[in-house]
Computed example of a mutant assay.
Amino acid sequence: YWSIGNEPTLFANLFRTEYDAERHSREWRAHAEAMLAVDPSIILVGPDLHQYPGVPGQNPRDAAGRDWLETFLEANGDLIGIVSIHRYPFPRSQANPVVSRDDLRLNSREWDENIIPMVRDVTRRITGRDIPVGVMEINSSWANNQRGEATMDSLYNAIWYGDVLGRLIRQRVEMVAYWDFQRRDLSFGLIGGYQVRPTYYTFQLYKRFGTEAIMTYSDVPDVNIYAALRDDGALTMMIINLSAESATVPLTITGFDPAEEAEVWRLDAEHRAASLGLQPLESSVRVPGDSLTLLIVAPQL
């Protein structure tokens, strides 16, 4: 996989130069064709726009009013292998930098309702193809923030990201890259110096998640569930409680004959992706507030 350039939507301001969607598309194609001439097997990723909220009138445009994604696809839709965007929903402005729990709680739904459906619709309309989608940079904030209830180093950021990942799995996104892995002086990283931040443990839970997505539904407010089958036949279910209050979640499984017990893993204020051992699989699950709970259920023998 190869990406050419990064966040061209910012070039004009960063480099104090005239740079627009057409110039980017033209220069990107020249590089792409040269690279493909050397190795036709490479998969090209782009255009890596710095923000894409998936809302008409808010998606990035150049100084002439041209939509960056549409202009790119019109010029390069025949060469692109993965259509990529970046997304940092907060802060909404430098004048209002504080991010609250409610901001994050209400935000993750944008992936289902706006962003990924619009990227797919625009791509299909312009190229006539269903091209895989990648979110090649993501975090809750584009600006450094620390030690708040919903800052990037908080437990709630980890819960928010767990829900975002579940939605991206449901939307069958090809690639997702969290920004970033390690930062000592800023709060972006999963690791800060020798400190492991809570969102790191979201990955520790999801590494046990399955690879074959299963349809799920929850009607419990602020509680979402995502499921997938693993290669060993186990059913994995990620239950995410975005509320500060604990909740009892009804659990009904169809089309799968489960064993009587579930392996339980949890991330919350008291557990860091910790195993809670085997517990009876019942018709409901009690989950703490602000938590990710992973159930791993083997098939009935």
Rank of each mutant, 00 (worst) to 15 (best):
N6S: 11
T9G: 08
L278E: 12
I253A: 05
E282F: 00
R170H: 12
T216F: 10
R26H: 13
L251T: 01
N224Q: 13
R105W: 04
R66C: 01
D67Q: 09
R101K: 14
P299H: 08
V249H: 09
S246F: 04
R87Y: 15
P8N: 14
Q279K: 11
H24L: 03
P53E: 10
L69A: 05
Y161Q: 13
I240D: 09
R147Y: 13
E7I: 00
N13M: 09
R129K: 15
L168G: 05
D163Y: 08
F203C: 05
S291Q: 11
V135E: 08
P8C: 11
V176N: 12
E261R: 14
T202P: 02
F15K: 11
L168M: 13
A247N: 08
L281Q: 03
Q195G: 02
L267W: 13
G148A: 08
E263Y: 07
E245T: 01
F203M: 07
S275W: 05
H271C: 03
V55E: 14
P221H: 12
N144S: 10
R129V: 00
A64S: 13
L10T: 06
L165M: 15
Y226A: 03
E149W: 02
D39Y: 09
V176T: 08
L235S: 06
E22R: 14
D20F: 04
E7L: 03
V297K: 04
E70V: 03
P40W: 10
N157E: 15
Q300A: 14
S246K: 14
S291I: 00
A298K: 13
N241R: 12
R101Y: 12
R208D: 05
M35G: 13
D102Y: 09
L278A: 11
P250L: 10
R272M: 11
W68V: 00
R170Q: 14
R105Q: 14
V287C: 08
L276G: 05
W265P: 00
D121Q: 15
N76M: 02
L73N: 09
E7A: 02
F11H: 14
R272D: 14
M136H: 07
N76W: 04
M238C: 01
T71P: 02
G148Y: 07
F203L: 11
G277F: 01
G277N: 08
Q51G: 02
E260G: 12
A63E: 13
S141C: 10
S140H: 11
